[in-house]
Amino acid sequence: MSETVLKVENITMQFGGVVAVDNLNLEVNRGEIVALIGPNGAGKTTAFNVITGVYQPTNGAVWFQGEKIVENHPQGKMKALYKGEHAGEYTAVLAPTPDRVTRLGMARTFQNIRLWKSQTVFDNVLIAKHCRSTSNVFSASFRLNRKEETRQRENVEELLETVGLADVKNELATSLPYGKQRRLEIARALAAEPKLLLLDEPAAGMNPQETEELTAFIGEIRDRFQLTVFLIEHHMNLVMNISQRIYVLDFGRLIAHGTPAEIQNNKRVIDAYLGVSEDA
């Protein structure tokens, strides 16, 4: 159970002179739901972008399922500008593109929903299956891959059934209500057959009832697809309810890490982010 799926090691992400993520270390174990929280601008999404290959970190490494997938060290003019730690420790450069990271088994959703707008719900999920397809462009064009295509379509039907979107599968993705669009984005990520699911503010803009449904939904899919979930979230109800462990970022630095109960009573976290409720 305690096998490490994701390990972020001494990651520093510096844009020019601005240190967005400063020496971040964290681990996510198989089957866990882990949350990353912190005030706006703390570097949470930047950390996600480094993990998924969108940004190349300035220094540090990322391990996924025991394999080093990202590594970098300060180069060129960054050498002089670098303000972080562990500068001499890394020598190699590993910079996978985001699609490669996804094919390795990490799928993500976005803070501001990014569905394919002109496509139906069904096609949105089906397109995500493309990265698992083994046919080349000839066999796909001339329908020599019919078996694979049929299997993919069946898988998508099944998946839509599981996430409760089967009844709207022929609607345009953008015609869905907000909550369902969020759900569809998660379904799309699931179609890429990930081991680790990264959710960037899945409950953003949701009302309390939708948030509650989403909380249950994340737990369900975790069990059903044997996933590990790593999420960024501001809704503390959701975070405290479903996560086993929580990391707290502030100004790019990790300020606390522990179980929900520990985090709720951590003085630094309360000062930096959670605050004190008025009636306390």
Binding site: T52, D99, T102, R114, W116, I127, H130, Q152
Partner: peptide, 24 residues
């Protein structure tokens, strides 16, 4: 075909397409 669908995904949203494993 599945490639045509990938093309349309790139047209609609490149960032999402790349995040869903389509090599741009």
């Amino acid at each position: 075909s599945t490639y045509g669908r990938a093309f349309k995904a790139i047209r609609d949203d490149e960032v999402a397409a790349e995040a869903m494993g389509i090599n741009l």
